[in-house]
Nucleic acid binder design. Structure first.
Length: 583
RNA sequence: GCCAACGUAGCUCAGGGGUAGAGCAGCUGUUUCGUAAACAGCAGGUCACAGGUUCAAAUCCUGUCGUUGGCUCCA
């Protein structure tokens, strides 16, 4: 066996141990809850990525004091080191055993009749469970209860709201501490905190869930857009601009009025009803209709950075990650069905080029296939799904197929990237649409002179730019590469007599297109350096007598350390190169 | 939308029926300094908002708004 295999096996053993510990901890927690709340109805309690939870129906919500008591009881059970035992029961026997537990009865009743029913117990407490436990409660390791949250029974918002207790369990105190440290680090990377600290954006209740971008944040956003536009030049897109508000007629035609009205902001003016756009696609269709199109023109790629507004239910918004006012690097490609493959391929190529620049390596791809409720013929779906799948297969990317998850109008590929806490967010997406061309009666003149229906591909590369910026901030912990940094170089005069020289350095940098500022305050150099470090400014240029004398700047990098003095011209050349190459 | 917690100065937070507090940031002055915090002073508040209880409410109660953690949702 190779060393690699040994370590792979060790990883497997450890994750298996954690699974069993956490699953066991959930049982022990449920036992403790039942002791304190004998009337509790217990639902389910699985292990998770970092811990475990268990859902309960109780007469009142759990308090922090309850959690302490539950923890104390759990410690007793763990200290008593009760062995876990499994047994197989008949269906009737199981129903009888859990006769006062309505959720368990529902689970048993829903099991296929030929399924074996197993019960796992430690000491006198038992739970319906397919198994996967440590040998005894003493082997549960180090655990901690974390929080209480509401959760619907069976994830259905029409069913009972249960109380879920989250906990975490690890094989050692060190592993638990490391986990808690990871959580603390994630908090330090939280884009909402960094957004305030770096003066990027803020929120105000006057427009809930809608970010206000300060000058610094606007620079980052505009740099992102500038980069996307650069790629658009290379990949053959044309930018367009479309209105913000449309007569309801448009939304009825596009299907949004029937399918998306709950998420739209509606306006009544002159006794007519208008909708603020939540998506750009219908406007793209109107643009397409403005002219007759020949097959020779296709594919037509219209890029639209229009601002969108969606009413998101309260409780689902989250910093920049889920907002009500947003901009996407959205585009609509009008092409023949034969061109779907190459268009999707070219899009993914562009996306990978861009994501590599941002250092997103943990991307996940999902291919979402036809849902039950859909438009278009089976033959069209066959072709579109096959086209997307072929692109993924030939591209060699890992991806998961998610059946039934496609949009009603066509299949799609989504690109997910995790935030600081490991929660995944969809950024890029590419979606084939058979519906829009039908609804808007889009046509092109084919080679034989006949009128044909084009296909529309909706695609967003960075996706919603607000969300992209949020994920990017967490990914970089706020330390933007030079090209994205709001301030690229901070000039730090050591004493007041160096301000004038510092200003001359600034002018040279600004002339070269560099965002540079002079810190002309009366703080000591050390304090100015500290302030610049905290702002995560990539370069600090210290100027004192020596530099002024020699026409130099003493360069300090954000990453720490004095890089020594170089001539102003050399520094300008170096930083402009770094900006131009987005390195 | 649902369950829960939270909302005090620009930020981070203390205070919890009887005069509104700290640190950082800001402003003013002094200091002019060589690679992560000089010193002093000043200013800063409808304690989210609206009702109620009380002699008295930032504090207790109710409602509203917002935020956070989950759940549900997410073309």
């Amino acid at each position: 066996m190779s060393a690699q295999q040994v370590s792979a096996n060790a990883d497997q053993d450890l994750s298996d141990l954690r699974y069993r510990m956490r699953h066991s901890a959930a049982h022990v927690m449920a036992e403790a809850v039942m002791k304190l709340f004998p009337e509790a109805q217990i639902a389910i309690g699985p292990p998770t990525e970092d811990g475990f939870y268990y859902d309960f129906e109780v007469s009142r919500p759990f308090t922090p004091e309850d959690l302490e008591q539950i923890e104390a009881l759990m410690r007793e059970t763990i200290a008593a080191d009760r062995p876990f035992r499994g047994e197989t029961l008949s269906r009737d026997h199981a129903l009888e055993r859990f006769s006062d537990q309505k959720f368990k009865i529902e689970i048993i009743s829903d099991l296929p009749t030929d399924e074996e029913i197993t019960v796992w117990s430690h000491h006198s407490w038992e739970d319906l469970c397919r198994g996967g436990h440590v040998d005894s409660t003493g082997k549960i390791g180090v655990f901690k209860l974390l929080s209480v949250a509401g959760a619907y029974w069976r994830g259905d918002e029409k069913r009972e709201m249960l109380q879920r207790i989250y906990g975490t369990a690890w094989e050692s105190q060190e592993a638990l501490d490391a986990y808690l440290e990871r959580v603390a680090e994630a908090e330090r990377r939280d884009h909402r905190r960094l957004g305030r600290e770096l003066d990027l954006f803020f929120f105000d209740p006057i427009s809930p869930a809608s970010p206000f971008f300060l000058p610094n944040g606007t620079i980052v956003l505009n740099e992102l857009i500038g980069y996307v536009k650069e790629l658009y030049g290379k990949y053959g897109y044309q930018e367009v601009m479309t209105p913000q508000i449309f007569n309801t007629e448009l939304w009825k035609r596009s299907g949004h009025y029937d399918n998306y009205l709950d998420n739209m902001y509606m306006i009544n003016v002159d006794e007519r009803e208008y909708g603020v756009k939540p998506m750009n696609c219908p406007a793209a269709a109107i643009l397409y209709l403005a002219n007759l199109h020949s097959y020779r023109e296709l594919p037509i790629r219209y890029a639209d950075f229009g601002r969108l507004h969606r009413y998101e239910r309260s409780g689902v918004t989250h910093g920049l990650m889920r907002v009500r006012s947003m901009t996407q690097d959205d585009a609509h490609i009008f092409c023949t069905s034969d061109q779907i493959g190459q268009e999707v391929n070219s899009f993914i190529e562009m996306l990978e080029e861009a994501y590599a620049v941002f250092g997103f390596s943990e991307m996940r791809l999902a291919l979402s296939l036809r849902p039950e409720k859909r438009v278009g013929s089976d033959e069209m779906w066959d072709r579109a799904e096959a086209a997307l799948e072929e692109v993924l297969e030939t591209g060699g990317q890992d991806y998961t197929k998610e059946s039934g998850e496609g949009a009603f109008y066509g299949p799609k590929i989504d690109f997910f990237v995790p935030d600081a806490l490991g929660r995944e967010w969809q950024l890029g997406t590419v979606q084939v649409d058979f519906s829009l061309p039908e609804r808007f009666d889009l046509e092109y003149a084919a080679e034989d002179g006949s009128r044909q229906r084009p296909v529309v591909i909706h695609r967003a590369m960075l996706g919603t730019l607000e969300r992209f910026m949020g994920v990017l901030i967490e990914h970089l912990a706020g330390a933007f590469p030079v090209w994205l940094s709001p301030v690229q170089a901070k000039i730090i005069p050591i004493a007041d007599r160096h301000i004038e020289y510092g200003e001359s350095v600034r002018l040279k940098l600004v002339a070269a297109g560099v965002r540079a500022e002079v810190d002309s305050g009366s703080d000591r150099m050390n304090a100015k350096i500290r302030a610049a470090q905290q702002r995560k400014i990539p370069y600090m240029l210290v100027v004192g007598d020596r530099e002024q004398e020699a026409g130099q700047v003493a360069v300090r990098a954000r990453s720490g350390g004095n890089l020594g003095a170089v001539s102003v011209d050399d520094f300008v050349a170096q930083i402009t190169e770094e900006i131009a190459t987005r390195s």
